[in-house]
Simulated assay, not measured.
Amino acid sequence: MTQVDGTECLTGGDSRPPSQVSQTVPATIRRTLPPGFIHLGVSKEIVPTLRELGVEPDPVIRAAGLDPHLFDDAMSMIPFAALGRLYTLCVARTGCTHFGLLVGRRASILSLGLVGRLMRHSHTVGEAVRALVSNLSTQDRVVVPALTGRDGIALLTFAAYQAESRSGPQILDAALGVTVNILRTLCGSGWRPDEVLLPRAAPADQTLYRHHFRAPLRFNQESASIIFSARDLDLRIAGADPMMRALLEERIQQLKGAQGTEFSDDIRQLLRTRLTSNHCSADDIAHLLTIHRRTLSRRLKESGLGYRAITNEIRFEIARQLLQDTQVPLAQIAAALGYSEASAFTRAFRRWSGQTPTAWRTEGDHD
Rank of each mutant, 00 (worst) to 15 (best):
Q221M: 05
R214C: 08
F228D: 05
R16L: 08
Q321K: 09
Q253D: 14
V91Y: 01
H211K: 12
A335V: 03
P34R: 07
A215E: 02
P329D: 06
K256F: 09
T88N: 03
S225K: 00
G116P: 05
N312W: 08
I182Q: 15
H279L: 08
S167A: 14
G149V: 00
A82G: 03
A131I: 02
H98N: 10
H123G: 10
G36K: 04
G41F: 04
Q259V: 02
G364W: 01
H366N: 02
G239T: 07
R117L: 10
A204Y: 03
Y307H: 11
T346I: 05
V60W: 01
R200W: 02
S19Q: 11
R93P: 03
L172F: 04
F71S: 05
R31M: 10
P48S: 06
V47A: 09
R166N: 09
T273E: 13
V47G: 05
H123S: 13
V42Q: 06
P17K: 06
N312K: 10
R16T: 09
I333Y: 09
R210F: 07
V178P: 13
A159S: 14
G36D: 04
R245N: 11
G54P: 00
S108H: 09
R51L: 15
G36A: 03
L50P: 15
L271C: 07
I29F: 08
L40S: 12
G104W: 01
G36W: 01
E250A: 13
V55E: 01
T138Y: 00
L255G: 12
H123T: 08
T7W: 11
S19L: 11
G113Q: 01
S22N: 08
V144C: 05
L233G: 02
D67E: 04
Q321P: 03
D5I: 00
A201Y: 05
W360I: 10
D72G: 08
T24R: 14
R274S: 14
A107H: 02
Q254E: 15
R350M: 10
W352Y: 06
E164G: 12
I226P: 02
L248A: 03
A309K: 15
P57F: 00
F219M: 01
Q162N: 03
A160D: 14
E8V: 10
A159M: 12
P57M: 02
M243V: 14
R272Y: 07
R274Y: 10
T28R: 14
L198M: 02
L300P: 06
Y209F: 11
F345E: 11
R120V: 04
V21H: 13
L186F: 05
R315V: 04
Q253V: 11
A27W: 12
V125G: 00
I182F: 13
F263T: 14
R192H: 01
V55Y: 00
G338T: 01
R218Y: 00
A27T: 15
A246E: 14
R30M: 06
Q20I: 08
